[in-house]
Write a protein that binds this DNA or RNA. Structure first.
Lengths: 339, 339
DNA sequence: GTGAAAGCGCTAACAA
DNA sequence: TTGTTAGCGCTTTCAC
């Protein structure tokens, strides 16, 4: 059904009475070729409506100029802005981006990674799922010397580049802030320990408590999946304790929002009865009432940097570049919910 | 630097003392081949750690099993949820998804489309930019008989499938609702007429007005780019009219939010002084105070359906399937800002 | 600076 | 049911 047959370098070669290899060289620049020929070929290519067959080029050169990306969910603002950053850099360097989502499920993640592997992406940028407790699927890449970069959530057993934010410091800053504003009973709704980000946030929280005269009270540490529902239940448990907290550091903004909702329904004043802080600076956090204190993570920048780093590695596959762990700063944003 | 050399079908064939084509057939199922051979090949493939080279397959079969996607911005909830839907369906059918964003710029869109074209995607799903007033780049696809599907925002001069929502009816419903709640002076902040969605919303608004005793007053129709800033300025102009509106239908939630902000800063009560309605049901709309009335669009479903439709078309390239325009229903969500 | 030739790994006629 | 053969369109030695 394809009407116009595709023009190939051979067609150009025939027309110009030169060889296909010369055409190939002329088109791919930088090889020693006379300016005259180069120009002739260029012009002819345009005239004849030639479009390079990247597939054939890839097959031959064993490079696909494609980056694979795996994120838990595309429709979460942090991840979509990271993808936006990946996208922008990658396209500027002529790389395509294949995107997949794990839905925070290990099995789906394995499936995505395997597919990207089979599609011979030149590198993979991944933020692992909440369930990821094995690394066999990730080893595939390191074993074949295909670059892999983790951003935000990493797998500690894989040696590779990482683009992270300082979750420990963020958790610490949040807790310090609550202490400084006068909270005496500070609780934390944490995410699964499996993930570095949640463990670090929690550790930062504990460090801040230890440095102060406030100790971690029984029942003040909840570990959940950080969904809306789980968050609400965890928050309810906290507020029903004999001695409920007067400040809660929620593992993410979603949880903080459901806490806010709980307070509204139960006539608790925020921040007077209980101060709340979230994490991520989702778009809703600034506009909800009371507006939500939170930590802003540079999603776009993380994506941009990940793409930059991995493409650099791809373009220098045979030089030995030591792995790097880049930790980007976060920003504590104090709004009404903790003022 | 790649250590392990890749196993090919020829390696399998040699080991099994059969021909490469038999291996190829055994691996790709459904061809007439004995169960015994099929099983033998399967097992060997696993044993030897064979992974198919999709590139070579694509070069030969002239299919890439890849869908191209172009959206204005990935980090807008409506689009990221649409992508999520595209993704889920496509991967379930073994298709990859290459994503790109136009940033609502015509030039960037042309660049994206051209790149997808050069990468020989089997089909393209696109929601055009605010600036798109030409279709040369889109014609590329239709001319070569490569399926293209528009979702939400389409180019009227290209004959193709479209997955839309009923923007006209939505604009109508919104305006009716404002009328029914007693608004007498109803204004509209519209987006660029170039895009079907904004034109339809506006036309729905006008129809509702015409049906009522309320006429469209001078200065009550603002046309903007619907960004936060432009929205705020447009809303300010409306409220500074000698006879300011008591109900405003904002072209999207972002604009409605900035209107809300303006009201807060200028001590206007929403909805008592002026009722507000947005469009899209962004995540923040439900949680802002007062919560924002809006229209919910089925983003995920639109993406899912687009993928389904285009893959069906790709798999039946030589059958003639008439183009279809699917219009999905929207849902008017009435919240505090217009109650 | 240019050409000839080989082959990347696979699929798809056409034979057998 | 299986094998043989011929490329898909490009890049890349190796000549000259």
């Amino acid at each position: 059904m394809r009407n116009h047959p595709e023009i190939t370098i051979h067609d150009l070669a025939n027309e110009l009475k030169i060889s296909a290899s010369t055409v190939s060289r002329a088109l791919s620049d930088n090889i020693r070729i006379s300016d005259k020929t180069r120009e002739k070929v260029r012009q002819k290519a345009i005239d004849m409506g030639y479009r390079p067959n990247v597939l054939a080029a890839h097959l031959r050169s064993k490079k696909t100029n494609t980056l694979g990306v795996v994120v838990p969910r595309i429709d979460r603002y942090f991840f979509s802005s990271a993808i936006s950053g990946i996208e922008d850099y990658a396209w500027s360097k002529g790389f395509n981006v294949i995107i997949s989502q794990s839905n925070d499920l290990l099995l789906k993640e394995i499936n995505c990674v395997q597919t990207l592997f089979n599609n011979r992406v030149d590198g993979m940028i991944i933020s692992i799922s909440m369930q990821t407790n094995e690394d066999k699927h990730l080893k595939l890449f390191s074993e074949k010397n295909i670059p892999i970069i983790f951003f935000d959530r990493f797998c500690p057993t894989i040696n590779s580049d990482r683009i992270l934010v300082d979750d420990f410091d963020s958790g610490y800053k949040i807790t310090r802030h609550l202490i400084e504003r006068g909270c005496k009973r500070i609780a934390h709704i944490a995410g699964p320990e499996l993930l570095n980000i949640y463990k670090d946030r929690k550790d930062g929280y504990i460090k801040a408590l230890n440095e102060s005269s406030i100790s971690l009270s029984e029942g003040y540490l909840e570990v959940t999946g950080l969904t809306k529902e789980e968050g609400k239940q965890a928050f309810a448990r906290l507020m029903l304790l004999p001695n409920p907290p007067d400040g809660v550091f929620c593992g993410n903004d979603t949880t903080a929002l459901s806490a806010l909702e709980y307070c509204r329904q139960n006539n608790l004043k925020v921040p007077d009865d209980v101060a709340l802080i979230g994490f991520s600076d989702e778009p809703f956090s600034a506009v909800v009432t009371p507006s939500l204190s939170t930590v802003k993570q540079p999603g776009y920048l993380m994506g941009f940097q990940s793409a930059k780093k991995i493409i650099h590695r791809i373009e220098n596959l045979n030089s030995i570049i030591p792995f790097e762990q880049i930790i980007l700063p976060t920003q504590l944003i104090i709004r009404e919910s903790s003022q």
